[in-house]
Write a protein that binds this DNA or RNA. Structure first.
Lengths: 336, 336
DNA sequence: AAATTAAGCTTAATCGTTTAAGCCATCAAG
DNA sequence: CTTGATGGCTTAAACGATTAAGCTTAATTT
């Protein structure tokens, strides 16, 4: 890779100091009173030599990289993939570049990911925090590293966040099922202390309680590293025996998909034997023989807001922003 | 953000020059004969002050950022999302970080994306090139920028690439359909000059010809920015009239999904009225009432190989590598 | 005519690391 | 007692861009 042209090259060709070139390149020729002729020559040389500023040098000097670090659970998960896309576009619009990493919901991995990104001097972070990373986040917060959490947050740590109104979402979903006449409603969620899960479960419970169905509450919590077998076990448990349910709410996209595989296996009739509500959109929901009712998240808004808030923060704002966005319940055949 | 600790801080605390600290931090205490006591003190101070090297400064000095630029069509597309994930993991293993961007199959966007990444001094690129970017790629190649193309490549530009044996994949798929007794087989592909599309189409044509079905060949090419309506039109055309087909091959994941929506709309019986073969895996294929036969791509291998080849290139290898990987045909009900 | 202001430029430090080159002991060998 | 290693350290330049401060010369003001 032959050396790229630098400010110095232009300076030499035009016969001036690098300072002047820098001023012109950065559009400060007025304030710094650079001569008209010289400005022209510098511009011409820059074009001719195809000058592109070295962002690394610039970053070192300016102390800002115009880069944001994005940490999600798994970029291959469509929910996070879509979010990443929105964030990418929005960041680009504002002149920022995105570096990403997947934590796999693992606190250790998230820690080293964050370290790497800090060493690369990202200007700020958008993070989907893994379980047990409250301390990590707190430390970042104390170091005044600009930071926005999304999808989830920690009650004990005061940070910016942009999340779904998870309680409202599941409350609404359960209310809809009840309205349709279902009473024996179960739920499959992750075993997790993360707030989004707690809130989704709370929405379910309160909706049940408020409709005098408190004693019908049946929640199965599965391990996120054994989704396949755990969901299978949970489904068998819930759909058999005395207290067999006739409707179910899944707490995430992945859980819904896993649940659908079980439904196939157990050849349950949807919605006759079991009504279903899923989480997030997914093409698979459309092609399931009984198209799924699901809770749609405003991914686009979420990503955009996250970037907006983060950049405000990077630009020095110190106010803490909490944003809860509303879902949309897409009603279809699986909950008729 | 209070200033982070630098080499200088450690040097001052221990009472030595920054050079020594740098040597120790980089594990060169042997070659550079640093005193045992001093090494200990420096190590202790580094830990105590929680020293983390500033990668920006390091990059500037070393002329290498340990960063790779990944340009895909759209990170929100599961195929590319999965690939990104594999690349991320593999790159991390080798000490590299990934910066990504989505081109939307748009040559202009790809150009500016590449420019941005070059200015950020990425050490090399993994690119899924958009149509009409052969010149861009050629220029990069001439500038000796380490580079691996994937998913597609250009016949006219000699670069490294890691792709699917697209011809073999569709040839195999069509052969399977013919074996199953289907003769009136159509195909829906993108209108594109990109090699992967050409090869997929060529595989279809040759398989048809080699089975004396040359006069049954029916290809519909749709615009990638109007997938919805174009596929609908193509499907109506192919599945009606005199020469109505009884089997179809889709050239990509997105096309398959679009096609399935049409199948729902036209309420075609699969596979009785129409056998289907899709491209790439997708959960939706599993839940379609007649689970889809599809061409599975070795995404993991593809991503891993791309990273491997790129890093070889970054490390100075000048040999050009061409890798074609084999698909797996997952046979299921939709082509029985 | 002296003093001030403005225009147009250069110098040099700086960001945090890396690394070639050199300095100064100490010690062994001749 | 000189020479040459060897060990253990420092100096300072370099990477490429930014920017405060200062230096000329010419023009304007008093």
């Amino acid at each position: 890779m032959s050396r790229r042209t630098s400010l110095k090259d232009i300076a030499e060709r035009v016969g001036v100091s690098t300072a002047l070139v820098s001023y012109v390149i950065n559009g400060q020729e007025k304030e710094k009173r650079v001569g008209k002729e010289v400005v022209k020559k510098i511009r011409a040389a820059a074009v001719e030599l195809n000058y592109q500023p070295n962002q690394i040098a610039r970053s070192l000097r300016r102390g800002s990289t115009k880069t944001i670090g994005l940490v999600v659970a798994d970029i291959a998960n469509p929910f996070f993939g879509n979010m990443a896309r929105v964030i990418e576009d929005e960041a680009n619009k504002q002149g920022y570049t995105v570096i990403f990493g997947s934590s796999d919901e693992n606190s250790g991995k998230m820690g080293s990911l964050v370290d790497i990104l800090i060493n690369r001097q990202v200007d700020g972070f958008i993070i989907v925090p893994a379980e047990g990373t409250d301390l990590q986040i707190k430390v970042m917060q104390e170091k005044k590293i600009p930071l926005v959490l999304t999808d989830r947050y920690f009650m004990e740590v005061t940070t910016n966040y942009v999340v779904l109104d998870n309680f409202g979402a599941t409350y609404d979903a359960i209310s809809h099922l009840i309205e349709k006449g279902y009473k024996k409603i179960g739920m499959i969620a992750y075993k997790s202390n993360l707030i989004h899960m707690k809130e989704r479960i709370r929405g379910y419970i309160e909706a049940m309680n408020n409709n005098n169905l408190g004693n019908e509450i049946r929640i199965e919590e599965v391990r996120n590293n054994h989704v396949g077998i755990d969901v299978e076990e949970a489904m068998s448990k819930l759909t058999a025996g005395e207290r067999k349910i006739n409707a179910i709410l899944f707490a995430t996209n992945a859980l819904t998909i896993s649940g659908l595989y079980c439904v196939q296996k157990l050849s349950l009739k949807i919605p006759e034997e079991l009504a279903i509500i899923g989480f997030d959109g997914n093409e698979a929901f459309d092609f399931f023989y009984s198209p799924l009712t699901y809770i749609e998240q405003p991914i686009e808004e979420m990503g955009k807001e996250a970037v907006r808030v983060l950049i405000e923060q990077i630009n020095g704002s110190t106010k803490i922003v909490h944003i809860k966005l509303r879902h949309t319940l897409i009603k279809r055949q699986s909950s008729l």
